[in-house]
Amino acid sequence: MSWLEWLVALLAVAGSLFVLLGSFALVKLPDFYTRLHGPTKATTLGLGALVLASMVYFNFVKGELSLQQLLIALFLFITAPITAHMLIKAALHLKLKTSAPTSGKQNADL
């Protein structure tokens, strides 16, 4: 295996790991507000790494020009914070319960 293939493998595995952990956060964390952190951050980075792996593979290993993946990254980075914002706004509106140790509830009017 050339070092480029090692790089692709590393990026793909690291990316998948981050996506997995981001999804794991959805199951494991105590309340809705904390669970939101998993998909907005870990999954963004994980998908970023996967996209990068795909770009390295097609452009350098296969040797064909392919920049489509940039669009995936672009749309992802624009939409992820907006999705999170809409979800947490809805949660605040419905006054969802927070886990016990949450501080600053008065700031959020809960």
Partner: peptide, 19 residues
């Protein structure tokens, strides 16, 4: 992300969520 992953893997009772 590294920080969030560390928090996610660690025990829940160490988290101090806040607004």
């Amino acid at each position: 992300n590294m920080q969030v992953v560390k928090l996610v893997v660690g025990p829940n009772k160490n988290l101090k969520p806040a607004f």
